[in-house]
Write a protein that binds this DNA or RNA. Sequence first.
RNA 1: GGCGCAGUAGCCAAGUGGUAAGGCAUGGGUCUGCAACACCCUGAUUCACCGGUUCAAAUCCGGUCUGCGCCU
Length: 317
Amino acid sequence: MSDFNKKPLVVLTGPTAVGKTKASIGLAKAIGGEIISADSMQIYKHMDIGSAKIRPEEMEGIPHYLVDELEPWEEFHVVRFQQMAKAAMEQIYASRHIPIVVGGTGFYIQALLYDIDFEKNDGDCAYRRELERIAGEQGGRALHDRLKETDPAAAAQIHMNNVKRVIRALEFYHQTGQRISEHNERERQKESPYRFVYFVLNDDRARIYERIDRRVDQMMEAGLVDEVKALRNMGCTGGMVSMQGLGYKEILAYLNGETSLEEAVYTLKRDTRHFAKRQITWFKREREVIWINKGEYGHSEEAILAEMRRHLREKLL
RNA sequence: GGCGCAGUAGCCAAGUGGUAAGGCAUGGGUCUGCAACACCCUGAUUCACCGGUUCAAAUCCGGUCUGCGCCU
């Protein structure tokens, strides 16, 4: 990362409910940064409570991008994130500020940081639907066997029960004529086009879990049920990407009479804990990350900020 | 005090003579266009305890302890 021709980029992530939002403001103020949200749910309007979205008054004047930009019925996915985030970065660089990517969606961060190429993938849902039909009728094994023929390496990496990924691999081959395993291998070699510092804010597992439980309770008090009711009245249904978010999925199930409210809250807490665990697993595999374990700084915001600034001085400025 | 029922992993739980299902939680992991998604792996040398019967016991018998219910 000694290439000073590269543009600077700061990443601040960590499992859900560690305190990213709070820390991000301090960081942005300290280095003259502007924030790009890397969060698959905060992008949506009308989804404030369940997505734990930052409130305008908490922003303290720091510009935020990719928050409240889409309607809940719009599609959002990595590629779209990548496009929007890049556009936001252009703007931030133009004002001679430093972009700070803040959020818990590791995949999105990776896509942006390494500028992963996802290849074109437009239209032609017919083939995809065909694959889904086969999966439904004959099971995942049939698709997986098919993948073995066209891309054995991918078949070896993807479990046959993971129908979603098997379909994508087949679709990729169908559309591009290339094997996705080879494409991924190539993309994996990429070096980041940015001069970046990648912070992972973390805490003891037990502490994170406690915070999650407490936060869910607070969401309920803040009116999560009403928020979801409003969304439902706007025509939002379980099939939408936005309604698959934690807090929306469960409350929607309750509103549809599929579960009791008690069950919904229990499931929401549990699944959020699972999510935090998966996030941590993801960050463990990322290269060149700087772990900031809150416990090592006595959970002091000032100490944590000082530590982050130390790294930034060393690697960025 | 008497009678009855129960005691299997952190929790729920199957198993009633042939060598401990399953679910949840927990922990670990995969991930390159739905990623707050999807998916994978993960535990009992042991069934409250002690003794007995039997080739063989979580399962049968006796006792002890604990919990629950009923009775006096």
